[in-house]
Design a protein around this nucleic acid. Structure first.
Lengths: 264, 264
DNA sequence: TTCAAAATCTCAATGAGTGAGACGAAATAG
DNA sequence: CTATTTCGTCTCACTCATTGAGATTTTGAA
């Protein structure tokens, strides 16, 4: 693909196959066909078919209803479900999200850090409708966008924090109208008040939110518990109640987690 | 890997890489280390490391907290979330599952067929706790186990149906204490009454359920909508109410889906 | 049936992936 | 803080598997 780049010695067949998966993902509902693959890669037609065949045999692709089109396979769903449960955090958190959503009617999310992104591991909507940058499990936003990102970002070491913000700052202000100063202010707010709040951006004006980090014994953020709610429902009393609920769930999670997260 | 098997001409590097993913998945929370990979494959150590490196670069693996251990990466979660939304069925169904769960308090699931398995695309728990063979999104059961399986199985053509049952029959009776005759009886029940019921197996005695298929215009099963509930909550009136709700949601889904599922 | 597009096959060439072993890096133990 | 084990990478030669070009077959739709 990039013969001029020293490809740090990792098998190119693998890289090619993953490219095909990404192309397929990019094509969404309808799936991808040969021309999509041919356009997006430098591979020859037979090679593409060979890789497609292999990916299908592994369950990573399947034939779409339309002839000649391919979609992502369910093996990805199965593995993805496991991937989202690293260290068992999701399984521990799922019933708690449900309980919070039923109790308050707002929507609750579990996030984890994924490189320069925050990824949603689990979502539980409540009775009141909400909008969010991340619609559901598997959604990803750049670290810095949304209250959960703030909660994750705040507890990284300074060097990493700075790298991420400088690296992603341009994209953040371009795509989300968020600038670094605002993010740093929100981090400061989190340290002062113990929770991250939804940034009042121009993007989702009707919604707001709260988030708190889930820290292990060493202060490293395992994830973040986030809440999204209609702005009209937010007031001091409701915020305090929801925060109490969230903190209680996290505390009980950490108590229970000792047996899971730190064993071996 | 299997030199005696005619390897139907698909790149072995891909196969090897997927093997590593499967090994990692099998190791669960703690992740997999080199010895796991060495034991489970015939690959040499450098090769394994090269593949691991490639998979990490693609986001398919990440380093576990413990040194030398690897876990599934979040890219799988992201792709898996898309994979579970083939044709947009899941996005259409999610709010309906939530609405049903809130209305009735039971738990509702969306299933799709995946080869000889039924795979859970989305789950929404209600206020009442339930157990299920499939705990959440990404869970898989052999076709034949559970009411959703029946709903999917019933609408396949006879040849396929027979193949699946004969092929998986032994495993079904061994792992789930279900025999083929019982499955065929349940299929008949579905055709007669319009819904599949939870089989009274020895495995989850406290729970029962209902399921209905989601059929496209040609009668092909796109998926199945399933409900799981405490047996103590099941009675004729509740069953009828839940079924009505489920049927209404599926009908409205299909009406809305015309614009999505059958375009292009 | 006809047609067009999708998928597979053949075959040679080559270059990419592989294995054996040595080497460097990194973390824990002492 | 040094020592030591374990993890991970590197070098290099070999060769086998992957690749590309084009022909061929299969498939689904008109």
């Amino acid at each position: 693909m990039f013969p001029h780049v020293a490809k740090s010695q990792s098998p190119s067949t693998l890289h090619n196959a993953m490219q095909l998966l990404q192309v397929t993902a990019r094509c969404g509902y309808r799936g991808a066909n040969i021309d999509d693959y041919l356009d997006a890669t430098t591979l020859s037609r037979p090679t593409i078919y060979r890789l497609l065949k292999g990916l299908r045999e592994q369950g990573f692709l399947r034939s779409a209803p339309a002839r000649g089109y391919y979609q992502l396979g369910y093996e990805l769903l199965v593995l993805g479900a496991q991937a989202g449960n690293g260290s068992g955090l999701r399984d521990l958190m799922r019933p708690r999200l449900l309980s919070l959503a039923q109790q308050f009617g707002d929507s609750f999310y579990l996030f984890a850090r994924d490189g320069i992104h925050a990824v949603c591991l689990e979502a539980q909507n409540g009775a009141y409708p909400v909008g969010s940058f991340v619609r559901a499990t598997g959604g990803r936003v750049p670290l810095g966008v949304g209250q959960a990102s703030i909660a994750l970002l705040a507890y990284l070491n300074d060097a990493e924090k700075r790298t991420i913000l400088q690296h992603g700052g341009a994209a953040l202000s371009r795509d989300y109208r968020i600038d670094i100063a605002a993010i740093e202010a929100e981090i400061a707010f989190l340290f002062e008040h113990g929770y991250a709040r939804g940034v009042e951006g121009s993007q989702l004006p009707e919604y707001t939110g709260l988030a708190i980090p889930i820290l292990d014994h060493s202060g490293y953020p395992l994830g973040a518990l986030s809440c999204s709610m209609l702005k009209s429902r937010m007031n001091d009393q409701h915020r305090a109640a929801v925060l109490d609920g969230m903190r209680a769930e996290v505390a009980s999670l950490l108590a229970e987690a000792h047996s899971l997260l730190y064993l071996e």
